[in-house]
């Protein structure tokens, strides 16, 4: 871990402006992924800006009947929030399927979105990786790829995004609120927040330098039956091989998103529309254009079956 200076920020705008002035600066909140990566020198900030004091830790009702979740709301608190449990069950379930109790107590809403991939080649600094060093090459391609992406991949990167929460946020049509160093705020639809790897897998989100997430907003509840089905080898404390977030309505309509299959939560509008036609049609549309390896091709079958399981679970 490289040496760094440590400071506590007071307001979001000031934090953003401080970070923008120093390209080696990083925000730290829960720290559960950042410190992990700093120990391996995958992240090497020379200035840490502690944003925990920014009072972004409330969950409030919005004017249009939704919820505004402060960036610093801990995963445990978000999952346990009565309104979330009642109206956004898929989110509560996704959070509870992730990590461990200890990690959820620290990890924040914004930090969860900003998690970096768990690709083992990304984690080993002896291995070339386009995320760590743009242009270095991808070691995963041709290597151990059982957990890697099957959708939206590129020649440069086949990593997945590891978050469960983000998959639920995607199916809930959340928006990410930010403040830029110049004080300008904006709202980024979750669909546009995470990027596909393309030729720039190191650019993982739509955030600009210094831009700070202040909240994630959920539209007003859409009702329906919620389910989050996470498939993994180990029964707990493991990243998803495939996960399914779904909201189903009595009339057969609904929404579905997949985790563990791409560089971002995977949702296809046409697949949502096909829900009344059944699992086969939905999965064909969701998985269209998939590119697999011999080790991760099972994810296509698994996704289809997990989709069926999640829908059964939602209806139960």
């Amino acid at each position: 871990m490289k040496a760094f200076t440590y400071e506590r920020a007071r307001t979001p705008a000031e934090a953003a402006s401080a970070a923008a002035k120093d390209p080696t600066a990083r925000f730290i909140a829960g720290g559960t992924n950042l410190l992990d990566l700093m120990k391996l020198e995958i992240e090497t900030p020379r200035r840490l800006i502690d944003v925990n004091g920014l009072r972004l830790d409330k969950i409030e009702a919005t004017k249009d009947g939704g919820l505004r979740i402060g960036a610093l709301v801990r995963n445990t608190d978000l999952a346990a929030d009565k309104r979330v449990r009642k109206d956004y069950g898929v989110l509560s379930r996704a959070l509870l399927a992730g990590a461990s109790g200890q990690l959820r107590n620290k990890a924040t809403t914004a930090g969860n979105l900003l998690q970096r991939t768990r690709c083992p080649y990304f984690y080993d600094t002896n291995m070339p990786c386009n995320k760590r060093t743009p242009g270095a090459g991808c070691s995963a391609i041709g290597g151990f790829t059982r957990s890697h992406a099957v959708l939206g991949t590129s020649e440069a990167c086949i990593a997945t995004h590891p978050s469960d929460m983000a998959v639920a946020m995607r199916v809930l049509d959340a928006s990410v609120e930010t403040v830029k160093p110049d004080g300008v705020t904006r709202s980024i639809p979750i669909a546009d927040f995470h990027r596909l790897p393309g030729n720039t897998p190191h650019v993982e989100t739509a955030l600009t330098p210094g831009e700070l997430i202040t909240a994630v907003t959920l539209p007003k509840p859409v009702g329906g039956m919620h389910a989050y089905h996470k498939v993994r080898d180990r029964a707990s404390y493991a990243f998803a091989l495939v996960s399914v977030a779904t909201i189903l309505h009595k009339d057969g309509s609904g929404r579905v998103a997949l985790g563990g299959v791409a560089h971002k939560p995977w949702r296809v509008e046409a697949a949502d529309s096909a829900l009344p036609q059944g699992i086969k049609s939905v999965s064909e549309l969701l998985l269209a254009g998939a590119k697999t390896t011999s080790q991760n091709a099972f994810k296509l079958t698994l996704a289809e079956r997990a989709l069926g399981a999640a829908m059964a679970q939602a209806r139960s």
Partner: peptide, 10 residues
């Protein structure tokens, strides 16, 4: 994280 061993839930 990569080499999974059983946890309580298993």
């Amino acid at each position: 994280a990569g080499y999974e061993v059983p946890v309580h839930a298993d």
